[in-house]
């Protein structure tokens, strides 16, 4: 048997790997400083958090009557926001999909709009629309429409790009115009998937809608802000629990419908 010097030597990791690691650690260290994180502050704050949570109990269940209407409003906002988002998302996703829109002149602006709308968080849309259209559910609905539009169109165009080419070729072969081509060659292939996406988006929107009121955009979030401002944490907890129950219930129903679609 060979002496151990004959054995291969472990190659040392490349410079690039070390540099990446160093860069990441440096960024992280800067982040810790920038955010003024301190463990002692966190540990010191735990009693405060405990007091806050203690004040939530016993929950003021009678408050449920007050928040029932805003909760309904929240659901209505989510339904309409998802719907409008979906209506606008479908056409633009066709424009953004490279297998449907061959020319870049239409595709590039479509992708630009799509990417742009996806960069703006839901609450930011809400704050913006609340200042423009006034406080209320209309602002919330619009915020959710724009927010859903960005996400849905991205999902949809990615789904369209993975579909089977055969039916589309067949439509070209029978001499269909572009709209017929999309209607018969593309839509049947993506419809079920798209409805699934819309349902899932609705689940996301219910969660989002519940907090939009914090910036005045209607729904139950307004009451969240109000009870917090009045230090009525026993009412806040009712809102939180109510929201969780509604979200979980809608998730359950929606995922069942989605399961049937696929």
């Amino acid at each position: 048997m060979k002496p151990s010097e004959g054995y291969p030597v472990k190659p040392s990791p490349s410079l690039k790997k070390w540099m990446t690691l160093a860069l990441l650690l440096a960024l992280l260290w800067l982040s810790v400083r920038e955010t003024e994180a301190s463990l002692s502050e966190l540990i010191g704050g735990i009693p405060e958090m405990g007091k806050f949570i203690a004040k939530m109990f016993p929950p003021d269940w009678k408050y449920l009557r007050v928040v029932l209407k805003p909760m309904i409003e929240t659901i209505q906002m989510a339904i309409l926001g998802t719907t409008f988002g979906a209506i606008f998302a479908l056409p633009i996703s066709f424009l953004a999909a490279s297998n449907v829109t061959k020319g870049w002149a239409l595709r590039t602006p479509a992708r630009f709009i799509l990417n742009l709308s996806r960069t703006i968080p839901d609450l930011l849309f809400a704050a913006l629309f609340a200042t423009v259209f006034g406080y209320g559910p209309l602002a919330g609905m619009l915020a959710l429409s724009f927010f859903s539009f960005g996400i849905l169109s991205k999902w949809a165009y990615e789904a369209i790009e993975t579909i089977d080419n055969g039916p589309m070729e067949a439509m070209t072969a029978v001499g269909a115009n572009k709209l017929q081509w999309i209607y018969f060659g593309v839509i049947p292939q993506v419809l079920a998937q798209f409805v699934g996406f819309v349902m899932y988006m609705f689940e996301i929107n219910i969660r989002a809608a519940a907090i939009l009121g914090i910036v005045g955009a209607g729904g139950i979030g307004i009451y969240l802000n109000r009870t917090l401002g009045m230090f009525r944490y026993d009412q806040t907890v009712v809102i939180i629990l109510f929201t969780l129950v509604i979200v979980l219930a809608i998730d359950a129903v929606s995922s069942r419908i989605r399961g049937k679609l696929i």
Binding site: I46, E48, F52
Partner: peptide, 28 residues
């Protein structure tokens, strides 16, 4: 799934109660 359902904004409000307003509450 409970954590996923819990809105981040409400969690932020709770952490602000603990460590005061600021970036650290956001980090947590």
């Amino acid at each position: 799934s409970l954590i996923r359902t819990f809105p981040d904004i409400i969690m932020a409000i709770i952490f602000i109660k603990a460590v005061g307003p600021g970036a650290f509450a956001g980090v947590l």
